[in-house]
Design a protein around this nucleic acid. Sequence first.
DNA 1: CAATTTACAAAGTATGTAACTTGTAAGAAA
DNA 2: TTTCTTACAAGTTACATACTTTGTAAATTG
Lengths: 198, 198
Amino acid sequence: MPRTGLAPKELRRRAIEAAIHRIKTVGYAKLRVTDVAAELDVSHAALYAHFSGKADLLDAVVGHWLDVSQEDLRAAVSGRGTPEERLENWLIQRLRLKREAAVKDPELYEAYCHASDRMRDVVQRHKMLWRDQIAVLIVQAIPDIKDPTHAARLVQSALYGFNHPRLVLDDLDTPSDEVETRLRDVLHTLIAGLRVAS
Amino acid sequence: MPRTGLAPKELRRRAIEAAIHRIKTVGYAKLRVTDVAAELDVSHAALYAHFSGKADLLDAVVGHWLDVSQEDLRAAVSGRGTPEERLENWLIQRLRLKREAAVKDPELYEAYCHASDRMRDVVQRHKMLWRDQIAVLIVQAIPDIKDPTHAARLVQSALYGFNHPRLVLDDLDTPSDEVETRLRDVLHTLIAGLRVAS
DNA sequence: CAATTTACAAAGTATGTAACTTGTAAGAAA
DNA sequence: TTTCTTACAAGTTACATACTTTGTAAATTG
């Protein structure tokens, strides 16, 4: 029987929190599963009953962050305003969340960048989620659109430069409103183009 | 008087060639200015009369590669076909040049990636060149466009995901025609949108 | 006197070894 | 029986030291 007296799910949750805490304090590069275990007062080996390894723990951390961001984003889908405004808000919100995260928790954001580079499943799943949400919003903005999935992929492609974690990091030093204006310009031009084609 | 018997310009040219040769053979990471000098049968210190340092030599290498690429691209500006086709061809050609370079001379391409990451002047200058050429082609494709420079910047933004050296490297494993089709889709949608706005 | 060399300081990289981390297996505890 | 621990092999990292490379200055050559 357990020494921690915690349900597996609970310990998993605490391990993720501990890992986040460690990443925030000592940095992503110096995260040791030994230290995470120590923070929970268990031996490092105990964590291997809950995570398949370090990569899995990091995936859980990134997955948690993506889930939290997802919450924030969902609001924009059902928010107020015209459909086109909602799509715009959703995209702007996604950009802002990343920029904020990159500034507020750079170490945590770095973990996300690494996960993204390695195309880990966590990130892939969320990319598909994003595309689905974009597709939903596009249908609302352009009701007689021919192929919503195709249109969503197209929008994703065109806005990739605003969304890719590394590139977000790159133009972190240019003012938000400038980047956001560029994003809006591209989006509106795309929508105008899609309306013509539909 | 010179021991090499070469005009400064000529030695500079040979140094660039030697550097390219070294990069191709031993790799970008292992390039030593000592070795480049040895290949020219001069002491490494002699190169400091022609380049301000290693970074400057690398800039010259990347600049040379960009100049050669530029030649290939210029053809598309005055090529045959409708203006829209020429713009499309120009953009596709730019993508192909990068993909080919990344496959054929990965080490040389890496040098370009590094220069791009560090926002070196060489790369900046060529980005502006590109935008000007796009602007020229846009004016031809949409004669009554309001602000060609703005439109060119917009197209650059939307196609950044296809053009950024690192991202080109990322989807090198997806087939050319798939990537090119996506680029064409985005471009045509943008042009349709720009036509509406003009 | 302009191009080059040798000589040299500062910065960077390679190497070997000790200490630490990761992941596994066998066994103890509740 | 499940959760955890200790013990351990394999792989990494940290660190001191020796060696390379970079960049500069003074001396040299045609």
